[in-house]
Amino acid sequence: MQYFLVKSEPFKYSWEQFNKDGRTFWDGVRNYQARNNLKEMKEGDLVLFYHSNEGKNVVGIAKVVKEFYQDPTTDDERWVVVDLVPVQSLKNPVSLEAIKNDERLKDVSLVRQGRLSVMTLKPEEFDRIVELGS
């Protein structure tokens, strides 16, 4: 099992809309490191959903249900998507400030590489964020 975090601006694609849709492909990634992280995702891996810009909170948990394939929004073969489904909302959204202030999360990619839209998480980082959101 691997763990990831994906970021979306709520006005573009919110956790609420994701829950209404029930499934989505994660598109629009145009950064090579983020793309490589998408390629690492395997069916069943868990993904934290983070609202960027507005809110700046981890708001839910999703699961990978289809591994990477060509991004249908572009003809450029370099870009890929994965399919995700929502698993559960966090009872309490976990703010970026809370993550930055937690000693156990000081090395999380969300803090170190704030602009990266798809990032890996260590199991203990994932578990800690979920714990903070309980």
Rank of each mutant, 00 (worst) to 15 (best):
D107H: 12
A34I: 04
V6M: 11
R115T: 12
F126H: 03
F25A: 01
K91N: 12
P123W: 09
V58L: 05
N36Y: 09
N19T: 13
F49Q: 08
Y69Q: 00
V94Q: 06
D21M: 02
K39I: 09
Q2L: 07
V85H: 03
K100Y: 00
K63W: 00
L96F: 14
V59I: 06
I61D: 04
S95W: 11
Y32E: 04
F49W: 13
R112C: 06
K106P: 01
F126M: 06
K42S: 14
N37C: 13
A62V: 03
Q33P: 07
S95H: 05
E77N: 12
L5S: 08
L46K: 15
N37F: 09
E103D: 14
E40I: 08
T74P: 12
P123K: 15
V6C: 09
D21E: 11
N53S: 14
E40W: 06
K7R: 09
F18T: 02
W79F: 13
Y13S: 02
E77V: 13
N53Q: 11
L132K: 09
V64P: 00
E77C: 07
K122M: 11
R35G: 12
E77G: 09
N31V: 04
D127G: 09
P86I: 10
I99C: 02
W79D: 01
S134I: 04
L90K: 02
G114M: 13
F68E: 10
Q113K: 15
N101F: 02
R112W: 00
N36A: 13
V6K: 03
K42H: 13
L105M: 11
R23V: 14
K63N: 00
Y69M: 02
V58W: 06
L5C: 08
F25W: 15
Q17S: 10
L38K: 07
D45S: 07
Y69D: 07
K66E: 15
L105H: 07
S117R: 08
Q113T: 12
I99F: 01
D107Q: 14
A98E: 15
V81W: 00
L84G: 06
P72Y: 00
M41I: 07
E43C: 10
L132F: 08
V29R: 08
V87Q: 08
V87C: 08
G60Q: 01
S109A: 14
T120C: 04
V6N: 03
G60Y: 02
W15F: 10
N37H: 15
L84R: 05
D127P: 02
H51V: 05
A34L: 00
E16K: 15
